[in-house]
């Protein structure tokens, strides 16, 4: 038994070694910097503008790219056997359904509430009283 574990440790040398680690590090850093640059570019942009939504979409795509690099190279999943990869990745595909269904549901709930509960809509248009500097600090 002990021998088989050792042979497993021996077998799993596939992968690019230190060179690959640094390559992935650079990719992750660049992706993060691009994300931050996009985040900065959104400051002051209109909340509901199409441009802002597009930038948010790009940030989400970059986020997924980062997730791929961490799982595939740092967690070494890319170099595992295909069957094993599938037992991890296929269940996670449920997220595609979870995210689209729940976000669409939330959005439609908001629209119905604004349409039928006028009181709620009016209330959500009230401005927050401007607090004087320092008053919101806890005593």
């Amino acid at each position: 038994m002990d021998h088989s574990i050792e042979s497993l440790a021996e077998e799993r040398h596939a992968g690019g070694g230190v060179k690959e680690i640094w390559r992935v590090t650079i990719i992750l850093s660049v992706l993060t910097i691009v994300e931050l640059a996009l985040g900065f570019s959104m400051i002051g942009m209109d909340e509901q503008s199409l441009k802002r939504h597009i930038i948010k979409g790009i940030i989400v795509i970059l986020m997924l790219a980062k997730a791929f690099y961490i799982v595939a190279y740092f967690m070494h999943l890319k170099h595992e056997l295909r069957n094993m990869i599938m037992t991890i990745v296929v269940p996670l595909c449920l997220f595609i359904w979870f995210i689209s269904a729940f976000l669409a549901d939330g959005n439609s709930f908001k629209n119905y509430k604004n349409k039928w509960d006028r009181n709620h809509l009016e209330h959500s248009k009230e401005k927050m009283p401007v607090q004087e500097e320092g008053t919101h600090h806890l005593e």
Binding site: I99, D105, G106, K110, N114
Partner: peptide, 18 residues
């Protein structure tokens, strides 16, 4: 995170993280 996203989609307005 999905609960957070759903709530955010169901709410009028949201604080600006910046």
């Amino acid at each position: 995170l999905i609960a957070y996203g759903t709530t955010r989609f169901a709410t009028n307005g949201w604080p600006d993280p910046n």
